[in-house]
């Protein structure tokens, strides 16, 4: 089945300037996107507008997010992709 335009748009927004972010987002979408709540999807949408460097720092555990929702989504993403 071809992907829907919304799915494809989300995947394209996950194409970033850093390999680390490409890998994290692609693995996360493959493993867990279908399990996300509406609230989590909105948070992911918000997060994808962040600059790459900030995403790198958050997702590689270099700094925490002050936003509770984002912080919990970051933890969920890190847990999901951890081998």
């Amino acid at each position: 089945m071809p992907a829907t335009a919304d799915d494809s748009e989300l995947r394209w927004r996950c194409r970033r300037g850093m390999l680390e972010l490409d890998i994290i987002f692609n693995e996360f979408l493959d493993k867990a996107y279908s399990t996300l709540t509406h609230e989590q999807k909105d948070l992911l949408d918000q997060m994808l507008d962040y600059p790459d460097q900030l995403l790198f720092d958050l997702l590689l555990g270099h700094m925490p997010s002050a936003d509770k929702g984002i912080s919990s989504l970051v933890t969920y993403i890190r847990d999901t992709i951890r081998p």
Partner: peptide, 11 residues
Amino acid sequence: KVFPTRSHTVA
């Protein structure tokens, strides 16, 4: 093809 600040220079 991507939003400009997502270019690879960022890496």
